[in-house]
């Protein structure tokens, strides 16, 4: 009986800690993104609030909280309120299945805790399914605003998701075939033991899986060069054009957490998770994991300030004419290689 209570308590604590970290992650991320944007454009970025502008996100947060929360007169009031939450909740739910490491022994009481909330046998399936739900927030937000720009943003988003979700899933199938498991911990375990065991270096198909996954992932989380749902050049701000204040902050929060989850997924599926590439073990596995995730977050931001946005028809032709056939071919080749 007491064991069960302790187990439940540990899970509860893990969820609270994870939730707290995820809620506070966008604060440093917005600052980092604006700094990277600034330095890539030979500017300084935020500089006046705190040393090197480090307190800027807090100032932004206070501003967001105190802004008037406008709901357009013609909007569908219920859906308009619910949409930001629908887009935010699934990206948090994704992290339930993500392993950050194997286990960790708490010092002093010698209690071993696993570094994941739930060890799911169908972890990858769960993640792909749940992250697909997030798009409903964008579609509903676009539709409920009763504005042309927002509706177009929502429509684009749904079309984009349909075309890229397929490629994303196909890219994951190769990894699943290799590990013969949907469990993310098993997938990482098959990659342990140095660089050459990482899925991305499973030649010749590994790099291709990763490139397809990465491009589809960029489209999935609406980042430049595929951020057509919020294309500010043609749609003002796309699906969140009518949102303001804290509801707008929810969408931004969802976007940043989605970026983190995509980075984590890329690391877990292709870059060996918490595997130490040097094999020397001078850094704990969780540090390696975070370093890799950090690199991917930087990569997403770096790409954002390098590439222009693709046109809508280009987006569609990349998705349907290149990525999906290529990923199908890739699965075929992987099958041959395994046999």
């Amino acid at each position: 009986m007491t064991e069960a209570v302790i187990e439940v308590a540990i899970i509860f604590i893990k969820v609270v800690v994870l939730g707290f970290i995820l809620f506070s992650l966008p604060l440093p991320l917005t600052w980092i993104e604006r700094k990277i944007a600034g330095h890539i454009q030979v500017r300084l970025g935020p500089f006046r609030v705190g040393p090197h502008g480090i307190l800027q996100p807090f100032a932004d947060m206070v501003k967001m909280l105190f802004k008037e929360d406008v709901i357009p007169e013609q909007a569908d009031r219920f859906l308009f309120r619910v949409a930001p939450i629908i887009s935010m909740v699934p990206v948090f739910m994704v992290f339930v299945a993500i392993p950050f490491g194997e286990s960790w022994t708490i010092p002093f009481i010698n209690k071993e805790v696993t570094l994941y909330v739930a060890d799911m046998n169908v972890g990858l399936l769960y993640i792909l399914a749940i992250s697909g739900v997030a798009v409903y927030g964008i579609i509903l937000g676009g539709w409920a605003s009763n504005s042309k720009y927002a509706l177009l943003g929502g429509l684009r988003s749904s079309a984009q998701m349909i075309s890229y979700e397929v490629a994303l899933t196909f890219a994951c199938i190769g990894v699943v075939m290799l590990a013969s498991s949907l469990n993310l911990i098993d997938i990482v375990k098959t990659q342990t033991g140095g660089l050459t065991n990482w899925n991305v270096f499973y030649l010749p198909v590994g790099p291709l899986w990763f490139i397809i996954f990465f491009i589809a992932g960029l489209a999935e989380i609406n980042r430049i060069p595929f951020d057509l749902p919020e294309d500010e050049g043609t749609l003002a701000a796309g699906f969140h054009v009518e949102y303001s204040g804290i509801r707008f902050a929810y969408f931004m929060l969802a976007e940043y957490i989605a970026m983190v989850s995509m980075s984590v997924l890329a690391v877990v599926l292709f870059f060996g998770g918490w595997d130490d590439p040097t094999g020397l073990g001078f850094l704990p596995p969780i540090v390696w994991f975070l370093l890799k995730v950090g690199f991917f977050i930087y990569l997403f931001m770096w790409i954002r300030f390098t590439l222009p946005r693709y046109r809508y028809d280009q987006l569609m032709s990349i998705g349907w004419k290149i990525l999906i056939p290529l990923s199908l071919l890739n699965i075929l080749v992987t099958g041959w290689m395994i046999i």
């Binding site: 454009q41 030979v42 770096w302 590439l307």
Partner: peptide, 24 residues
């Protein structure tokens, strides 16, 4: 071409900024 672009931006990312920190 994309890699070329990325190398240009990362060069600027580590270069000095041209901003004049005017009032401060």
């Amino acid at each position: 071409d994309i890699l070329k672009g990325l190398s240009v931006t990362v060069k600027y990312n580590v270069s000095r900024s041209v901003t004049i920190r005017y009032p401060d």
